[in-house]
């Protein structure tokens, strides 16, 4: 079942440009120059129930703009968008009941209030029945280990603690759809892992549909079955992580630790891409030569202490895609 449908979405912003210096400031009062930024050019995708989709792209690619349109905060210039059959910006309030939104850079909680009071207020805002609220809250407190944080004012929480509380706050009204905008930004390793394992449980056990925007490819590798990559407001790739890889490069790498650092190692079907002391990195195309065959070749000719086989890191893949599409 399709929960979210986005078709040919376009959105541009007009940004006021001010000339530098005193003269510029004066001129800005009279006539202001504007520059148009095409945040979304032609974005289309669909989300089915229970999917966890990664939404990636370089800074300024239009990720947050898409999330804002889906949340009903922003009206696009053209194109269609439906969330659970509703147009988000036309039925903003009804849409709000069915989605949860977490902005990593900005808390949705009340800064001066203890966490528990924010939760109480959210119950009333979303008109959740007391019994439902108690159950949902109890589950979230347990899953996110919030027991010790409930009476702490939000401003006193660490970033990781705050993010866990924000996740709970976005889910108290039990929305079937969750938008996570950079939920792991700035978090330490244990907090990142906690957020990831929570999101995984959420989709696997609760069937919540999630859009995750992030710059952290570990988030993507750990969580997402599907990745949508955008740059300059256009979708460049939409498919599994494996598809994304093969789209850019099928290259695999063999990292070999030689017993004798001076030993020569060559094969016409592979190229040496790095050599540091006894460690040699060799790349090859698995379509031309199978890994076992290549390894057997090398083992027959030189003494090898250790050997690992790698794919191109997803970071490199993505960086290359960004580069090819002229991103900064």
């Amino acid at each position: 079942m399709t929960l979210v449908r986005v078709e040919n979405l376009a959105k541009s912003f007009r940004v006021a440009e001010r000339c530098p210096g005193m003269w510029g400031a004066v001129r800005g009062l009279v006539a202001r120059g504007y520059r148009t930024i095409q945040a979304l050019d032609d974005v289309s995708f669909e989300l089915s129930a229970g999917e966890l989709v990664g939404y990636i792209g370089p800074n300024g690619a239009g990720k947050s703009t898409t999330v804002k349109v889906l949340a009903g905060i922003l009206v696009p210039d053209s194109g269609r968008c439906e969330v659970l059959g509703r147009v988000p910006w036309r039925e903003r309030r009804a849409n709000a009941r069915d989605v949860g939104v977490v902005f990593g850079q900005r808390t949705q909680l009340w800064w001066d209030l203890p966490v528990a009071e924010s939760f109480d207020l959210l119950r009333e805002i979303y008109a959740v029945a007391p019994a439902d609220h108690r159950r949902a809250r109890g589950e979230l407190v347990e899953m996110l280990d919030l027991g010790g944080l409930l009476n702490v004012p939000v401003r006193q929480l660490s970033l990781g603690q705050r993010m866990r509380c924000d996740l709970a706050a976005a889910l108290l009204h039990q929305p079937p759809i969750l938008y996570l905008d950079e939920p792991t930004i700035g978090l330490d390793a244990p907090s990142k892992l906690a957020v990831r394992s929570f999101v995984r449980t959420l989709t696997r056990e609760r069937g919540v549909t999630v859009i995750l925007t992030t710059h952290d490819m570990d988030d993507i590798e750990a969580l997402c079955q599907r990745v949508i990559l955008i740059a300059h407001g256009r979708v460049l790739s939409n498919g599994s992580l494996k598809d994304l890889r093969t789209q850019v490069s099928r290259e695999r790498r063999l990292v070999i630790d030689l017993a004798d650092p001076m030993a020569e190692i060559t094969d016409p079907r592979a190229t040496i891409t790095a050599r540091e002391g006894a460690r040699v990195t060799v790349s090859f195309d698995p379509d031309r030569v199978a890994a076992p065959e290549l390894i057997a070749q090398f083992c027959a000719r030189v003494a090898i202490r250790d050997l690992t086989i790698e794919s191109v890191p997803i970071e490199e893949i993505v960086a290359q895609l960004y580069r090819e599409n002229g991103a900064p």
């Binding site: 903003r92 309030r93 805002i125 979303y126």
Partner: peptide, 8 residues
Amino acid sequence: DRLLLRPL
């Protein structure tokens, strides 16, 4: 934006 996210 936060206010716009709420059903009020």
